[in-house]
Design a protein around this nucleic acid. Structure first.
Length: 300
DNA sequence: AATGCGGGGGT
DNA sequence: ACCCCAGCATT
């Protein structure tokens, strides 16, 4: 299964990348390693088009780890705005503080040091090594997984969860030298993002259509279809938490309990969500002045 | 290995 | 309506 024709495949993708790579700000030659790390955390489950303006504003406001480390969490959460999963914003600030405390304010280049940072997992650590430091690493995100599933494995889509076999395959395809490996990582991701897309792939524009196992097999349907149930959204705790966070972000000051309760009619669910937001450190409860006065809530 | 965790845009 | 998006932390 490890593609016998790895070299032509890599060459075609790298050549295509040279002509079609997007001009994203975190790819700029003068972007700092911290800028790359910030972009990667923002891009964890949030599309590029929504991250780009947020990243520009964020980096203008807090250009160095020490700047973000010194900010108030409330400001951080407001600047995060609607990027989603606001716990990531808190982790990014914890990450900034860890970089300052453990590494003197300089983003580390080693895999172990990167993985030890809050909010940094296998993907992000590999991405920072490649894109910030030009080092060889195995960058295996949803885009690369899909490209490899189709081109090499002949499947419509990768398995719901990442397998060890996928990591081995990806590893086998990464070029040996640092510079080419880093460029391959960006190129294979970009191909998945722009051409080999999940929904309606543009095979007619694909530089490796001629060597694609999925296309050669007649583009069979997804074998995991039906087993991919999406998480419901309407009425979930995630939706309720999102409403509470939106209220707190937009408020100028502390919010009365009554206003928090107004965002959702089901009392028990709202209480559960408020408690979880408190546990997550995404909000703070300030007791009322009197014992029988209701509390107020604010961002941390 | 499974779950929980936002929010918006494309199809 | 449904699906997807440069995942991570926790259980």
């Amino acid at each position: 299964m490890p593609a016998p024709d790895a070299e032509p495949l890599r060459a075609a993708v790298l050549d295509w990348f040279g002509r079609h790579a997007r001009d994203l700000p975190w790819r700029s030659a003068d972007c700092s390693a911290w800028g790359v790390l910030v972009s990667e955390v923002m891009l964890q489950q949030t599309p590029v088009v929504r991250v780009e303006p947020a990243w520009r504003a964020w980096m203008a406001r807090w250009p160095e780890p020490a700047d973000l480390a010194a900010a108030s969490p409330a400001d951080v959460l407001r600047a995060w705005d609607r990027l989603g999963y606001p716990r990531r914003a808190l982790r990014l600030q914890e990450c900034a503080r860890a970089v300052v405390e453990r590494h003197g304010g300089v983003v580390p280049a080693g895999a172990a040091e990167l993985l030890a940072l809050p909010g940094v997992g296998p993907y992000t650590a590999a991405a920072v090594q490649a894109f910030a430091f030009g080092r060889r690493s195995v960058v295996l995100d949803t885009n690369v997984r899909r490209v490899l599933a189709r081109a090499v494995q002949g499947a419509a889509l990768p398995a719901p969860s990442q397998t060890a076999a996928e990591v081995r395959l990806a590893e086998a395809l990464v070029p040996a030298d640092d510079a080419t490996a880093a460029r391959w990582s960006a190129a294979s991701m970009e191909l998945g993002a722009l051409v080999c897309t999940a929904r309606s792939p543009r095979c007619e524009e694909c530089p490796i259509a001629g060597m694609c196992a999925w296309r050669a097999a007649g583009r069979p349907v997804d074998e995991h279809a039906g087993r991919r149930r999406t998480q419901a959204w309407a009425g979930t705790d995630r939706q309720v938490r999102g409403k509470v966070m939106a209220l707190l972000r937009e408020a100028l000051g502390p919010v009365p309990a009554e206003a928090v309760e107004a965002v959702w009619p089901e009392r028990a669910q709202l209480e559960r969500c408020v408690e979880s937001l408190l546990v997550d450190g995404l909000m703070v409860r300030v007791p009322g002045a009197d014992d029988d006065q209701p509390p107020v809530y604010r961002l941390p």
